[in-house]
Amino acid sequence: MAAHSDDPLQHPEVQQASVFGYTAGFLATLALLGAALLLTEGHLMPPEQLLGGISGLALIALLAQCFLSFGLDITSHNIWKSVSLILTVPLFILTIGLTVWMFQQLDALTMIPGASVMPGMTMQPTLLQ
């Protein structure tokens, strides 16, 4: 590890705090989520596209937070955080994406169409004697 002066306040991770960055991150996230809210409440897109639209806005908000709030970059004190995050992102996609896909296929193959309104789906399981 590179030597730093003994004052902890001079550490690069303390010094990387920036009013501009945090304000920009705050406002950007607020604005993007507000836009997503408007899109949804105002039904400004057809439903199938709407989900894609708000997902896209969420993604941009998260990216904005990465750069502006978390301050992730490739400087020596942040690079490992950035690398580990980038390597972890595919795992989110795999966990959620493959699960949802798998269950869509499963439902299509095993669930009777219209099963959601069947009366039998409201029973409590009882204790086996």
């Binding site: 306040l9 303390v14 010094q15 705090a17 920036s18 009013v19 945090y22 304000t23 991150g25 705050f26 996230t29 607020l30 709030s69």
Partner: peptide, 15 residues
């Protein structure tokens, strides 16, 4: 978001 913003500004004060 405001709470996070407030704390982030607190760390600017720390700087």
């Amino acid at each position: 978001l405001s709470s996070v913003f407030a704390y982030s500004l607190a760390t600017v004060a720390l700087k």
